[in-house]
């Protein structure tokens, strides 16, 4: 026995263990109820998240399909609009609008091409410019009288009147 053992410790009451276990079991029960409530909340939140994700995915897929269809075809094509090749009864409203837009673009491209074609021959027939193009020569004015001995503009002086 150590001399320190004279220092008495406080001893537990007889029912301490029973009270402690009761408290622990009560705590476990309330925790279990809380856990069940928490799991129910989590399940509801998960179901909601799945629904929202489904709606978002559906919307995204629809928008993606629209953007793929609306991508412009090769810009240099001058072929007839597809609306002329497809049965109009098979086209939906969106496809019809798209075909109309494509037809308008093709018509504009044809009009521009026509104008270019008309302008090109005129440029080809234009005469080549001469070296003195735009030069205006000045002819000397002659006031000499026939037979004027001092005149130099009419050639050699004549014998005079």
């Amino acid at each position: 026995m150590s001399r320190w053992d004279e220092w008495k410790a406080q001893v537990p009451a007889n029912d301490f263990a029973a009270r402690t276990v009761t408290a622990a079991l009560r705590e476990r029960g309330s925790k279990r109820r809380l856990d069940a409530r928490r799991w129910a909340g989590l399940a509801a939140a998960a179901a909601g998240a799945v629904m929202v994700a489904g709606v978002a995915w559906g919307s995204w897929a629809q928008l993606r399909g629209m953007s793929t269809q609306a991508a412009p075809p090769a810009p240099t094509t001058t072929a007839a609009p597809r609306s002329a090749q497809l049965d109009p009864r098979l086209l939906t409203g969106q496809e019809a609008a798209k075909e109309a837009a494509l037809a308008a673009v093709a018509a504009e491209q044809r009009r521009v091409q026509d104008i270019r074609t008309r302008l090109q021959p005129a440029r080809r027939v234009a005469p080549a410019a001469r070296p003195d193009a735009g030069y205006n020569p000045i002819s000397p004015h002659c006031d000499c009288m026939p037979g004027d001995p001092l005149c130099s503009c009419l050639g050699a002086p004549g014998p005079g009147p």
């Binding site: 410790a9 406080q10 001893v11 537990p12 301490f16 263990a17 029973a18 276990v21």
Partner: peptide, 17 residues
């Protein structure tokens, strides 16, 4: 649980007190 508490309660009380 009761056995567990009874086994160690004296030691815990001694230290705390």
């Amino acid at each position: 649980m009761t056995a567990f508490v009874r086994r160690y309660e004296r030691s815990v009380f001694a230290f705390l007190s």
